[in-house]
Design a protein around this nucleic acid. Structure first.
Lengths: 350, 350
DNA sequence: TGTCAACACGAAAACGTTTGCGGTTCTTCG
DNA sequence: CGAAGAACCGCAAACGTTTTCGTGTTGACA
């Protein structure tokens, strides 16, 4: 096991000073041609690489992005990470991930332990519990310390940071409009509680679509799922709520669900109730993941373009990081495009 | 924007030396009660936290694990990461992820950039391309440098490192045995090319099961999917190969697939061919993910317990990291248990 | 009053870099 | 031949810690 070579080691071996070695390797013109070559050859031979930690300390930059997400076993979040990683790597940054598991406390801890020099900036999506209790002191504090944050998907309005979102209202409106265009009369929505911004906004889009088409709002057509924490864990609870909902509203002929899990679960329940999809009931989901693609029947869904969101978030963050201290640029909120991917849970548009 | 306080700053403010501050905060008995209290109060007030990077440099430990996986948009890998993160966090470690995208080159780069001081050890699953070309110099080199690696799932036999795997042969044999027990006569397998160890081993288990039951091996019942890279991307290719396979082997009445994507794709194709599942054809997959759970019908599958694998891998790595240099312990290969989760693509066992 | 231990604290080195500045040596020109 | 200027290189500080060792001040005790 050979130890990693350091400048000091090379210096001693070659009988020059540490600074000479450093300068030689960085091709400084202060150093003579011969010495340079000697040093470079030696460095190559021993496969020298500068120690990242030392560099970080010196430069007060770690070239590392902290990504904090509610859960990682989730297609949308992983595509976002993919995007972040892709852009970050292209620009010489690494990515360190923290999982909040939708818990406020874990989110705080994660922010705290990473903010102590380990990372240059954060990219995050806020935990449900945090949204629910509305305590954002940890976010304000890290921003106060000069560590920039970029929020995506689940963002906070009054936060001094860049944001990456989709136009939830407009997109949802389009999705519901599509259902209406396809002839659906009674459209239900399966959403989240209102403190989850995306749930609130998508519901808003749903309402707007109804309004635009002069349709009355039937409050019993609106289901707001109660799930504080990770959703994969309490599937039965989810199924029960949806089952209840569908049984009580037999006249529904279309469902708009604010995520794909709700959508496929709704389909499963509907099937148990003897409904044929899309004949008896059309379904559109939100978030295009594996579930939608491989569901039976394949689910028509709104694609959020997670990869693009990730790349955008990374771009915003890195841009800000590499700005000079005083180019205090205003914070930006970029809206990434969505697409409706038509599969087989809606009627074909002509 | 307040700057992060450092020892130096506190020292100056309180008119004591840096070392005094450091000792006071660590409750050294060298420091007087009064001074201690003064320092601690001040530190608390200004929310002092030691700088991680400085600590890393001093201790030559980063308290960070590098995780390198082929792709992150993949349920199995994310559950493993979840497990790693869970154990790592409990023990004061952070996790930094690198994606190889199944590419040899990216794997090398990732290893290289992280090995320069950023992390204390690696947990990884080898990229398909790496397996296919069989070049492992980068792995040997990092191990040579004293950076321990723990491999999981896709592991290499002759590598000096800890490993975490499932008993692929035995598990697959059990799965196929179940199919046989349920009355299937002609069982096909959808696997990967042999250089992917899990594919090879699971095929071996399949063959063993046939042998144990004195059934002849029909080579045309064995499909080895050709997909060098990320599998989600070329779904059509996958579908074509499977479609071909099923059409040529009309007498198949059961399928064992080495991952869930192959399994659900096979179901989709079978349905197109007019087969009813499980009546005309039983299916068992490997790797219990969202797909299996939400497939139609819900897929009977072998659960690899990714979370457990992750925790185990992290445990092995951290154990080794915290061992004294000279407790040269032999490398360990731990086999985590699997379960067959019966859902609706197989007949109910009585 | 002199001695010694206990106590409280500071100086400095170390981790591995980069970089401004200062110091040699050698060339070259007046 | 003397001096100016290249050309080449080393010193030391800095990033933020921890820790060893040393030092000065007290107090107790003989």
């Amino acid at each position: 096991m050979k130890q990693k070579p350091t400048l000091k080691l090379i210096a001693k071996e070659l009988d020059v000073s540490v600074s000479t070695v450093s300068k030689a390797l960085r091709d400084s013109k202060e150093i003579g041609k011969e010495t340079k070559e000697k040093v470079k050859a030696f460095a190559k031979l021993y496969n020298y690489r500068p120690n990242n930690i030392a560099l970080s300390l010196k430069n007060r930059k770690t070239q590392t992005l902290g990504v904090i997400i509610p859960e990682i076993v989730h297609h949308f979040f992983t595509t976002v990470i993919s995007g972040i990683e892709s852009y970050a790597n292209e620009h010489g940054y690494n990515v360190i991930v923290g999982l909040s598991n939708e818990s406020f406390k874990k989110e705080v801890i994660n922010l705290d332990t990473l903010a102590n020099g380990s990372i240059d900036g954060f990219i995050m999506s806020v935990a449900k519990e945090t949204l629910s209790i509305g305590d954002y002191h940890h976010l304000h504090e890290t921003i106060d310390q000069g560590i920039p944050i970029v929020m995506f998907d689940r963002v906070l309005d009054n936060m001094d940071c860049d944001k990456v979102i989709v136009d939830d209202v407009r997109t949802s409106q389009q999705a519901v409009q599509k259902l209406i265009g396809n002839g659906s009369k009674n459209i239900g929505i399966i959403s989240t509680k209102d403190y989850v911004s995306v749930g609130r906004l998508r519901t808003e889009g749903y309402l707007k679509a109804l309004e635009k088409n002069q349709k009355d709002v039937n409050l019993s057509y609106i289901l707001k799922i109660h799930d504080e924490f990770s959703s994969e864990d309490n599937l039965e609870a989810l199924e029960d709520q949806i089952s209840d909902f569908l049984s009580k509203n037999k006249d529904l002929d279309a469902i708009f669900a604010v995520n794909e899990l709700y959508a496929v679960t709704a389909m499963k329940v509907a099937r148990k109730l003897g409904l044929d999809i899309p004949h008896d009931m059309q379904v559109i989901g939100f978030t295009d993941g594996v579930l939608s693609k491989h569901a039976y029947p394949p689910l028509t869904t709104v694609s959020q373009n997670g990869f693009e969101m990730g790349r955008t978030a990374a771009r915003l963050l890195i841009n800000r990081l590499e700005k000079d201290r005083e180019e205090i640029e205003r914070f930006e909120t970029v809206i990434v495009d969505t697409d409706i991917i038509e599969r087989e849970t809606t009627h074909k548009s002509k």
